[in-house]
Design a protein around this nucleic acid. Structure first.
Lengths: 217, 217
DNA sequence: CAACAAATTTAGAGAAGTCTAAATTATTTT
DNA sequence: AAAATAATTTAGACTTCTCTAAATTTGTTG
């Protein structure tokens, strides 16, 4: 049974280790959590005592199997709650995160599993991220950035890389969301802008935008 | 913005003050919370500093208006979540409490209000207790104990006094729940047992049982 | 490879909440 | 009303998590 704080750390370690392989550095977790490096070191020791991470002084941590399982259980809850908030409680993409951060700590297996059933066993959350199932297994399907999609090939929006409210609201205004069909019509070499087909409308987006949208080809 | 602990105390103070008028004693909160009286004294001081209670040494506390509002906000969330768990997530009477104790601390006005809308503005939770509305007002309808119901007068089960799992499961087995019509057919003076009509079946219950069921006449 | 910079850890302290044990106040009993 | 009992508070300590400031280790560069 973990405290709120240890759960936050495990989740942060999991996420950082996903985006960059190898051991996770003290500073990277400090940034993610919003704590000072010295606090992170303290927590690393605590997690190590509980065999949730392997910790080597001056060389960061890596999750043990038990640590990975604990992290996935939290991520499972987080993504199920996000799905619920969007599908039944009228939350938008950009509003769910803060609340899901709280809900992910609720301890009740029955609650999690019943919520999953109620949502009809969703495989992905509103940001397009995969939801671990009861056995903590998740389907990671082949996702690429919109910028990498070949011209004239059809894709479907399945998520975003940048989760900032600004970006999510920008996409909402352009009527781009999970499931929107996307296609690159033309790449402008001059300024790297793109003309795209998004659902039924055609519009122009910048390179930066195209680098932050995930699509399934 | 309160901590988990202060929220628990405010709720406990509210409940105790409802069942016995006047100032709330240190010991009664200690029992309710499961803490030592000395810890309760500490917390009383903290709550007093925040103007959530009025505290007089050696004479317990009483909630200020601000304290009452805070307590009601928590109770509102608790009862809405209990309703959700029972109506949509297959929880039973006796399983909801522990989970709702956690969920009641989630901070998001939008979440609370959307949940209320999703549940279609329920006025009472699965134990028959009234749910404060957005303005923190609740309808407390005229409820009496089954033992006080005159013979042959019809009533409807609206809740219970004893919330123990044992009792709730006992009622489940007898098919008595919220909304079940109840009627006393005969009082046995010899051993204080009662013959009652519960829905479509007639059964015998003890005095103790009848003292723990609330009915609306 | 020495010197500097960056990252990390240690040491010591603070806030929140809890406890035990002792002291104090209130209440009840005789 | 004094003595005994119960309730409450104080004092001091502990745990968890956090911080700042200083010390140490690692890496990077001239």
């Amino acid at each position: 049974m973990q405290t709120l704080s240890t759960e936050d750390y495990l989740k942060a370690i999991y996420h950082v280790s996903q985006s960059s392989p190898g051991a996770v550095a003290t500073t990277s977790i400090a940034k993610q959590i919003g704590a000072k490096p010295s606090s992170v070191t303290d927590m690393f020791k605590k997690l190590s005592d509980q065999n949730l991470v392997k910790y080597q002084k001056y060389n960061g941590v890596s999750l043990t199997n038990e640590g990975i399982k604990t992290a996935l259980r939290i991520i499972r809850k987080h993504r199920l709650w996000e799905s619920f908030l969007v599908s039944h409680l009228n939350f938008n993409w950009d509003e769910v995160h803060q609340v899901a951060e709280q809900l992910e700590h609720i301890q009740s297996e029955k609650l999690t599993n019943e919520l999953e059933r109620f949502l009809d066993y969703p495989t992905h959350d509103p940001h397009g991220d995969p939801i671990p199932n009861r056995a903590l297994f998740m389907k990671t399907y082949n996702k690429i950035l919109l910028i990498e999609l070949p011209v004239n090939k059809e894709g479907v929006c399945i998520g975003v890389k940048d989760n900032s409210s600004d970006f999510l609201r920008y996409l909402d205004r352009r009527q781009i969301g999970i499931g929107t069909p996307l296609q690159i019509l033309h790449r402008e070499d001059f300024d790297d802008s793109l003309h795209i087909q998004a659902g039924k409308s055609t519009l122009m987006i910048t390179k930066k935008t195209a680098e932050n949208i995930y699509v399934k080809p």
